[in-house]
Design a protein around this nucleic acid. Sequence first.
DNA 1: GCAGGATATATCGGGTTGGAGGTATATTCG
DNA 2: CGAATATACCTCCAACCCGATATATCCTGC
Lengths: 175, 175
Amino acid sequence: MQLAVLGFLYDAQLHGYDLRRRIAALTGHVRPIADGTLYPLLKRMETAGLLRRELQPGQVAAPRHMLSLTPAGEQELLNRLRDPDELFITDENRWFTLLAFLRHLDDPAEQAAVLRRRLHFLTQPASFFWDGDRPLRAADFDDPFRQGLFTIATATTRTELTWLRETLAALESQA
Amino acid sequence: MQLAVLGFLYDAQLHGYDLRRRIAALTGHVRPIADGTLYPLLKRMETAGLLRRELQPGQVAAPRHMLSLTPAGEQELLNRLRDPDELFITDENRWFTLLAFLRHLDDPAEQAAVLRRRLHFLTQPASFFWDGDRPLRAADFDDPFRQGLFTIATATTRTELTWLRETLAALESQA
DNA sequence: GCAGGATATATCGGGTTGGAGGTATATTCG
DNA sequence: CGAATATACCTCCAACCCGATATATCCTGC
């Protein structure tokens, strides 16, 4: 969630409530971020020197705490966007959030580097898709639900790989 | 993670180390469950009466704590498989884990009910895919990475929907 | 004039997670 | 024989997350 906060505040000054709405919209309003998550997070980030707040008298309702990133906060976002650990598949949302803010790395070559890392990560033989050297097939699972899980996982990965290769080609022709 | 533990122990007696391996293999060995997560979890689950352990003298190495579900533990798994809250998209792994153990609900009609709930959930207009009544298109986003995020999200959903409809048809013809 | 909803922020408790570190035994290979 | 590796379990700690609960303001409709 830190990543989303950093991403949204990178070029805009927002208050907590607005942030909450935007984070919810980022992946659909299915599971909005809870107040008990957001406000303590903001406080932690402020203590850590990543953001500062400016109290603004209430115009619409209660007074707003306008939030903006400190230089350290901006640096933190850029570091995270470049951090190889951020793109693990196990937490899809993490990768999606990163993708949503990748434009903040404004050098196309750097953006391409992140995508290439993701590409490398996805094509690496992980044991869910490989049995040693042999790629697994859905037929290798006897249970239809395990088969489905495998089917969905591989189809998803294939879709993303296609997109990654196309986007990379576009970025590289641009550079 | 509780769900995975319950799922694996439903019809097999395992020790912690084995459980750790199986959970890691479930979604690829990318992010194996940490010891600091697993062992405290097992202890909590034992305290909660969901599982019991039986000490077995070491055959291969250190003595093993063989784990098995109590009747309450078995019931807990079945409850979770039926729980509508378990299939939120925000935590893909949660849904995948559930899918992997859906066979434990051995009535095809009940399995179908879970899939139908997921289907309903995915087709519900969420604001990531819809702008009010109008379905969003990739072209609605100016940033190529947001476009990509949207493309991948929709393609993934479409893939899963196709699979859900096929699997449901198969289950219903079977019943 | 007041009830209800949207705006806006906050705390508390309990559960969950991962990283770092520690202990001990059995096998395998040089 | 000794080192490395795999097996097997454990604890502490800091961070994190959510639900419940609380407070206060502004606007709209009745």
